[in-house]
């Protein structure tokens, strides 16, 4: 009985966080004020972090809260403050009737496409590996992520540091005041 109850509780929370994520995302794209939109996006990101933790990706969940909700969104809100865009202007920035119709139609088409894809008679499922993946890391939760990161993907990892350096230099060059030359 205990196991069944746990499973039910798990499903309930999975759907709960998923519903909150979708509702917050819809609220996010419909808000006029950039600050309100950013706050709703933070709610979506927190729900996604909860889902990551529920799907045995605890490290990614922590990174989601720290990097996305904590760092990237702070930069967004900071820029909104810097440009003094906190007040929604009289003119909404949401495009006109035709633009909204087009976007809504495209969104419905995308969802319908995905739904038909899952119901298609063709076997589109990915091939499940014959050897079941087992968590062989000895380093606990983080070991499962950091092991491949520092072994198989070491070159990519080093390249991301170059990418971050380029981003820092680029942001500084773009953001500084143009000197009177």
């Amino acid at each position: 009985m205990g196991n069944e109850f746990f499973s039910l509780l798990y499903s309930f929370h999975f759907y709960l966080f998923g519903l909150i994520a979708v509702a917050a995302a819809i609220a996010f794209v419909t808000r006029k004020s950039p600050v309100a939109a950013a706050m709703w996006l933070v709610v979506t990101m927190f729900c996604l972090a909860a889902l990551y933790v529920m799907m045995d990706a605890q490290f990614i969940g922590v990174m989601q809260v720290l990097v996305y909700a904590g760092a990237i969104m702070v930069v967004f809100v900071f820029v909104v403050m810097l440009l003094n865009l906190g007040h929604p202007s009289e003119l909404s920035d949401i495009s006109g009737k035709w633009g909204r119709l087009f976007a809504g139609f495209l969104g419905l088409a995308l969802v319908a496409e995905i739904l038909t894809l899952t119901r298609s008679p063709m076997d589109l499922r990915l091939v499940v590996p014959t050897i079941p993946v087992t968590v062989t890391s000895t380093g606990g939760i983080i070991g499962g992520v950091s092991g491949p990161l520092f072994r198989e993907y070491l070159l990519a990892f080093e390249l991301t540091s170059v990418l971050l350096l380029i981003a820092i230099v680029g942001a500084v060059v773009l953001g500084r005041k143009r000197s009177a030359s």
């Binding site: 995302a25 794209v29 633009g99 976007a103």
Partner: peptide
Amino acid sequence: TIGVVGVLTR
């Protein structure tokens, strides 16, 4: 999809 619609409408 919500993100795509947002990019197109905002």
